[in-house]
Computed example of a mutant assay.
Amino acid sequence: MSKIYIILLIILVVVLFVSFNGRQAKTTTGTAAPYKKISAQEAMNLMQSGQTLTIVDVRTPAEFAAGHIQGSLNVPNETIGSSAPSALPDLDATILVYCRSGARSAQAAKKLLAIGYTNVLDFGGIINWPYEVVR
């Protein structure tokens, strides 16, 4: 008789565990905004639209100092962890992200979305930026 209770208890624990994990995965996946890649032209159009934007350069401070897009903030990709960077307090702000070639900007954009930012747009690398930069 006790073997039956142990087996039923094990089955109950497994069912609850599977049920909880399924719900947890849906919640985590369902809340992140989608990753969006845009062109340099689309980014420039947004910058010229008068819309409030935050432009984020995710390169190193030395790369940023060598030349960056006017008005951008330097938030290195390596410093973006599991919580919102202090330089980016508004999770609902429209954030345009770039780096040197596009690899780090894609990583940073995805990390920001995972943290809870809702409107992050990756426009790739400054090497493909045909417009003026600040030196």
Rank of each mutant, 00 (worst) to 15 (best):
Y117L: 01
G124P: 13
S19E: 03
A114V: 11
L73Q: 05
G81R: 07
Y35K: 04
A106M: 08
A108Y: 13
I55E: 05
S83A: 09
I10T: 13
V58D: 06
G81D: 11
R59V: 09
K3V: 09
I38Q: 10
P89W: 14
G102H: 12
S82R: 07
S39A: 07
L16T: 13
T31F: 09
I6E: 06
V15E: 01
G125S: 12
L73R: 06
A108Q: 12
T79W: 04
I69T: 06
V58C: 08
A25S: 09
G102S: 10
A114S: 15
W129Q: 08
S2L: 12
I127E: 12
Q48H: 11
K3N: 13
G30V: 01
M44E: 14
S82L: 10
E78C: 02
V18Q: 08
S83N: 05
Y5L: 13
A33H: 06
L12E: 07
V134W: 06
V56H: 00
I10E: 00
V120P: 00
D90F: 00
I55N: 11
S19Y: 10
D90H: 11
V14Q: 05
M44W: 04
L113Y: 14
E78G: 05
V134Y: 06
L96Y: 10
N77Y: 11
G67D: 03
T28M: 10
N77C: 03
S83Y: 03
E63Q: 12
G30K: 12
A33M: 03
Q24E: 14
E63M: 04
G102Q: 10
L88V: 02
K3M: 14
